[in-house]
Computed example of a mutant assay.
Amino acid sequence: MAAKGREREKEPLDSVHQNAILCETILKERRSQKLHTDFSINPFMKPHVLTEKAMPRHPYEDAEEDPTFLKMIHGARLEPTKKYTHPQTESQEIGWISTPLIVQDRSDRRLHFARQNSEITKYMDAAWRLKEQTQNFG
């Protein structure tokens, strides 16, 4: 008996069932649709610059610039610290505050340790320079 159930073929759908399926599909599509009427250029994409024609009939010298569009384009090109007050992601938190905590004072010997050369370091510097010169000529 189980074999008979598997062998049974599907009956072809009549026009009433096909219309019901179509209506249900359209209702599902309309539920998830959203009408967009406000369009603008993505400020994060580099705009494609097209050259003008060689002999234009209508020169664009009299065209006015849209200040809001220019502000949006220039704002998109700023670095994140100038765009936002706080970091937007976890990885932006590293290095967000890039100003030093204290002013560097090279004369203060407590914080600045100048490079000091001894006899051995002077000898090794000269040896490394001589080795680099012989490799360049050899």
Rank of each mutant, 00 (worst) to 15 (best):
K4I: 12
R8F: 07
R8P: 00
E11A: 08
E11G: 09
P12K: 08
L13N: 06
D14V: 00
S15P: 02
S15G: 03
V16W: 01
N19S: 12
A20Y: 11
I21Q: 13
L22R: 15
L22Y: 10
C23P: 01
C23F: 01
E24C: 07
L27T: 07
E29H: 03
R30A: 13
R31T: 10
R31I: 05
S32M: 11
Q33E: 15
Q33C: 15
K34T: 14
L35G: 07
P43K: 15
H48E: 05
H48N: 08
E52W: 00
E52Y: 01
K53L: 11
K53Q: 12
P56F: 01
R57T: 02
Y60V: 05
E61I: 00
D62Y: 01
E64G: 04
E65R: 03
D66E: 09
T68Y: 04
K71L: 10
K71E: 05
G75E: 09
R77E: 11
L78R: 09
P80L: 13
K82F: 04
K82C: 04
Y84F: 07
Y84D: 15
Y84Q: 13
T89G: 05
E90C: 05
E93H: 14
I97S: 04
I97Y: 03
T99Y: 02
T99C: 08
I102Y: 11
R106M: 13
R106Q: 05
D108A: 13
D108M: 08
R110S: 09
F113Q: 10
R115A: 09
Q116M: 09
I120G: 04
I120D: 10
Y123M: 15
A126M: 10
A126L: 11
A126Q: 02
A126W: 02
A127M: 01
A127P: 00
W128L: 11
W128F: 04
R129N: 04
E132Q: 14
E132I: 04
E132A: 05
Q133M: 13
T134G: 04
T134N: 01
N136E: 14
G138F: 03
G138A: 15
